[in-house]
Design a binder for these strands. Structure first.
Length: 450
RNA sequence: UGCGCUGUAGCUCAACGGUAGAGCAACCGGCUGUUAACCGGUAUGUUGUAGGUUCGAUUCCUACCAGCGCAGCCA
């Protein structure tokens, strides 16, 4: 099929004595000013004005307007272009021309068009659609400008996360997705079968990554995480991605220093590399420019004081709800830490503060503008007897945690780490209302399609 | 799971209890610089499901179903 199309295209070249077209992407179109190029893509939208067809062409890297003038192309080509439906696959050739009127500064004077596949009735029209409809068409939705930009930012954030740790001597140490028991002893896991045994989809790689830290010093895992919580809010997905570094020989303070350095790096990198995308999403850049360390550190006790000063009824020992998080968030113009929560409500593996045994050596990083918790982390209990006691207190199956207890038996050291939720981070960096737009195919309560 | 809201054309939404309507998309035509282009024309319905009140229900009532928002839980 391709060869016959090329012949057709070559004929036009001959007839008009045009230069051969260079393969080009819209992203790099500036390099081709004055040159004749070929763009392989899709029709994003079109308008016409009698004797001119304006074709908005997208190729995945960007959108450019192709201008097709009636008297400059064969009449059949002009008519064909006029009838083309949104998202028809097309190969367009033409000359790149600088034009002030164009969004990207360049237009394409089209001299030929080859239709690879025609489309009619593309469901996502350039008008308003409801979220439910768009989510039903998620497989098409991210062809649209805004979703396209968000997916690019997500990709860059993930690359930045990986680069940060790879460049600093961390070993990628992936944790299993199928696990024999609950990592943190909580319920709400997706259950499945491992042949005849019960198995669960992981809700955190942390326990495994601890084993990695004691072997390699500094490791991280990056993968999907599953929570079978019946949560339906703008901050929750049933399946989400988390990057979880774990480091031997660090304390809580050092842990927080790594976190702020890491988050600053990720945000600043998106700021410098994704300007176009952030503009399409209409993100207020000034908010992100303030994301510089050091991030404020607030003890749980102080956070409770802040809430009380603001007239919020709050009992010491409770965990913060969404409303409380938002109020605290308004206090700062950058992410901040809340550390040393009451140990009662926290996971069994968290180390107690030796100076105040009722507190856990843990911290959350809360993103500004009401985006809530993006990181949870802390110091792990490294004493064998203490950890065994906690396992028993939480009535966890001792046998399943044998290997985890072993880590405290053979060369135990103070260690800690944290987990950053990718989708919440993307939502915050992009300034989105809901995390469902931050992942290609969101898994939500009541939605597993497409 | 609790509280609240919604369900009408492919999409976004109207319609005091009195024969079901608009914009966009589709289709036909017009326009030499459009940019969610515009202008004229054509076609489009089991009003979520089941019952009830009523002469008459898209409208009022009940149940169910589906979805959304908020909360809890968490990243």
């Amino acid at each position: 099929m391709e060869s016959t199309e090329m012949t057709k295209s070559d004929q036009v070249v001959e007839e008009k004595c045009l230069e051969p077209a260079l393969p080009a992407t819209i992203q790099d179109i500036a390099k081709f000013e004055g040159k004749r190029v070929e763009i392989k893509g899709w029709l994003y939208n079109k308008r016409s004005s009698g004797r001119i067809n304006f074709l908005q062409i997208r190729d995945g890297s960007g959108i450019i307007q192709g201008v097709m003038v009636k008297k400059e192309v064969p009449i059949e080509t002009f008519k064909e272009a006029k009838k083309l439906g949104q998202e028809s696959a097309i190969i367009v050739t033409g000359t790149v021309r600088a034009d002030e009127r164009a969004d990207i500064g360049y237009e394409l004077s089209v001299d030929n068009l080859v239709v690879i596949s025609e489309t009619d009735d593309y469901p996502i029209t350039p008008k308003d659609h409801g979220t439910d409809f768009l989510l039903d068409h998620r497989h098409l939705w991210f062809r649209s400008k805004r979703q396209h930009a968000i997916m690019r930012v997500r990709s860059e954030i993930i690359n930045a996360c990986r680069d940060y740790f790879n460049d600093r001597g961390y070993i990628l140490f992936d944790s299993p997705i199928l696990t024999p028991s609950a990592c943190e002893g909580t319920s709400n896991l997706f259950g499945t079968k491992y042949f005849d045994e019960d198995a669960y989809l992981t809700q955190s790689g942390q326990l495994y990554v601890e084993a990695g830290a004691l072997a390699f010093g500094k490791v991280y895992c990056f993968g999907p995480t599953f929570r079978a919580e019946k949560s339906r809010t703008r901050r929750h997905l049933m399946e989400f991605w988390m990057i979880e570094p774990e480091i031997a020989y660090i304390n809580l303070e050092e842990n927080m220093e790594i976190q702020e350095d890491f988050v600053e790096y990720v945000v600043q990198r998106v700021l410098s590399k994704m300007k176009i995308e952030l503009k399409i999403i209409e993100r207020d850049i000034s908010k992100l420019e303030k994301v510089k360390k050091p991030f404020p550190r607030v003890q749980y006790d102080e956070a409770v004081e802040i809430l009380k000063k603001k007239g919020v009824d709050f009992t010491w020992g409770d965990d913060f709800g969404a409303e409380h998080e938002t109020i605290l968030t308004e206090e700062f113009d950058r992410p901040f830490f809340v550390h040393r929560y009451p140990a009662e409500a926290k996971a069994f593996y968290m180390k107690r503060d030796p100076e105040r045994l009722e507190l856990a050596l843990c911290s959350d990083m809360l993103a500004p503008e009401g985006y809530g918790e993006i990181i949870g982390g802390g110091q792990r209990e490294d004493d064998y007897d203490e950890l065994l006691k906690r396992v028993r207190e939480h009535e966890l199956p001792e046998d399943a945690y044998r290997w985890y207890l072993d880590l405290r038996k053979y060369g135990s050291v103070p260690h800690g780490g944290f987990g950053l939720g990718i989708e919440r981070t993307v939502a915050w960096v992009c300034g989105l209302h809901h995390v469902r737009e931050t992942i290609p195919f969101p898994r939500m309560l009541n939605r597993m399609y497409p």
